[in-house]
Amino acid sequence: MIRITLVAAALAAGLPLAGARAQAPLVAEGCIGCHGPNGAGAGGVPALAGRDRAELVALMAAFRANERPATIMGRVARGYTEAEIAAAADHFARLPR
């Protein structure tokens, strides 16, 4: 029953089901150019996958407010709305570490 509901919901959203589970919001696509596919991290750039959602949101808020020293993330964080940051954090928090 739950399965059927999911199928219907995915279809109603116009999404293929397989993608529906791990579907990145488009806003998160910008992150992976540095943080790696699936936010897995790359070299000196930290992973986002599997991090605590609240931690990610708080980090971005601190970067936005210039309350945390940043190499580039202050400049990045100020380009996004709070809702967009929340959506991206939701997504990465749900991915396996």
Binding site: I32, G33, C34, H35, G36, P37, A42, G43, G44, V45, T71, I72
Partner: peptide, 23 residues
């Protein structure tokens, strides 16, 4: 330190974006 970090982040960018395209 900023300059050194950005050189390493550049390497990460190259690795990540080419994986996103070709891996």
């Amino acid at each position: 330190e900023q300059r050194r970090l950005e050189a390493t982040y550049a390497d990460s960018w190259y690795e990540s974006i080419t994986k996103d395209m070709f891996a």
